[in-house]
Amino acid sequence: MFPKYFSLLPFALIATCVISCKNDVLPKPKSYLSLNYPTPKYSKFDKNCGFSFNYNTLGKVVDKGNCNFDIEYPSMKATVYLNYKPVTNNITLLLRDAQKLTYEHVIKADDILEQPYVNKEKKSYGMFYEVGGNAASQSQFYLTDSTRHFLVGSVYFYAKPNYDSVLPAADYIKNDLRALMESLKWK
C-alpha cells in the first residue's frame, strides 16, 4: 500500500513546485492618458475691427459678425469666444458684465484666480481669470484701452465639466489666451 502512494509523491511534488513558482499577481498601477499637443505656431489675425491679435494655428478663427469671433479647436472639442464692444461712456457697465460672467461659475468652481494684465506701451489693461474645479469655463479674460475698445474672451469645452479630464487641453488653451492678450493691438 505504501508503494502505491509513494509513486504519486513525485507528481504531487512537481505540481506543487509548478504552482508555487509563478510570479505573484500584482494589481496594475493607475495610469493617466498622455496627451501631447503640438508646439503652438501663432499667426496674426487682423480684420476691419478695432484690434488685431495672434492666434494658435491649431485653432480656426470663425467670424461671427460685429467684430465677434470664435477660435475653434476641433481636436480638443473647445471654442474660445471673443466678444468686442465699443466703449461709449459705459466702461463701468462693461467691466461689471465681464466680472459677472466669470463669477457666475463660482457655484461649481473650487477657486478663481485673478491675474491683472497691464501693458502701458500698447495701452492695454485687463484681467485674466483661471477658474479651478468643474466649472464650464476654465479661463476667461477681458482687455480694454479704457477709452474706445473692450474685448472679452472665454474658453468652453463641448463636454461635461470634469476638471481632471479637460486639464491638459485647458492648460494648452490657457497659454494661447495669454499669447493672444500679449499680442493684442488696438487700432
Rank of each mutant, 00 (worst) to 15 (best):
A98N: 11
A98H: 09
Q99T: 07
Q99V: 06
K100R: 12
T102Y: 00
Y103K: 03
E104M: 09
H105D: 05
H105T: 02
V106D: 04
V106I: 15
I107A: 12
K108D: 07
A109N: 04
D110T: 12
D110Y: 01
D110G: 07
D111T: 10
L113P: 06
L113Y: 13
L113D: 14
E114L: 09
E114D: 07
E114K: 07
Q115P: 00
P116A: 11
P116T: 06
P116F: 05
Y117S: 07
Y117E: 06
Y117T: 07
V118W: 00
V118T: 15
V118K: 15
V118G: 04
V118Q: 13
V118F: 03
N119D: 15
N119R: 08
K120F: 01
E121A: 14
K122W: 02
S124L: 08
S124Q: 07
S124A: 15
S124I: 05
Y125V: 08
M127E: 08
M127W: 04
F128L: 15
F128S: 03
Y129E: 05
V131L: 03
V131N: 00
V131C: 01
G132V: 00
G132F: 14
N134Y: 06
N134E: 02
N134F: 06
N134L: 02
A135N: 01
A136F: 06
A136H: 02
S137M: 08
S139W: 01
S139G: 07
F141V: 11
F141W: 13
F141Y: 15
L143W: 13
T144I: 12
T144G: 11
T144K: 11
S146P: 00
T147N: 08
T147W: 03
R148Q: 08
H149D: 03
F150S: 13
L151V: 15
V152S: 14
V152C: 08
S154V: 12
S154R: 14
S154D: 12
V155G: 02
Y156Q: 07
Y156L: 09
F157K: 04
Y158S: 10
A159W: 06
A159F: 09
P161G: 05
Y163W: 11
Y163Q: 08
Y163G: 03
S165N: 10
S165E: 15
S165P: 01
S165T: 13
V166T: 15
V166A: 09
V166W: 09
V166H: 06
P168N: 10
A169S: 15
A169P: 10
A170N: 09
A170G: 10
A170D: 13
D171I: 04
D171V: 04
Y172D: 04
Y172E: 04
Y172S: 02
I173E: 02
I173S: 02
I173N: 03
K174M: 04
K174G: 12
K174S: 15
